[in-house]
């Protein structure tokens, strides 16, 4: 895995659930079982890891609960 965004996301996902691997199909609520507060914490870590800001509007517009969409969003921000 040489893609830095994928590596970074994989690390953050592992922090939540060590048994879960990176996959574009993962959903923050359905697969990672995150509640609303966990998601706030996860997005904070994503912002820190990749040096970006994610607005609430973008979370909805780009459907960022999906890891594949989040990956693309981070790539576009960089």
């Amino acid at each position: 895995m040489s893609d830095t965004v994928e590596v970074g996301l994989a690390k953050l996902i592992e922090n939540i659930n060590p048994n879960e691997k990176y996959s574009p199909d993962l959903d923050l609520t359905e697969d990672l079982n995150l509640d609303s507060l966990d998601i706030i914490g996860f997005l904070f870590e994503v912002e820190r890891e990749f040096g970006i800001k994610i607005s609430d509007q973008d979370v909805d517009s780009y459907k960022l609960f999906n890891i594949g969409n989040l990956y693309e969003y981070i790539k576009n921000c960089q």
């Binding site: 706030i40 914490g41 997005l43 904070f44 912002e47 820190r48 609430d56």
Partner: peptide, 11 residues
Amino acid sequence: DGRAIFNFTVS
């Protein structure tokens, strides 16, 4: 703004 306040406190 719960997210902004959370981000502020934790950072």
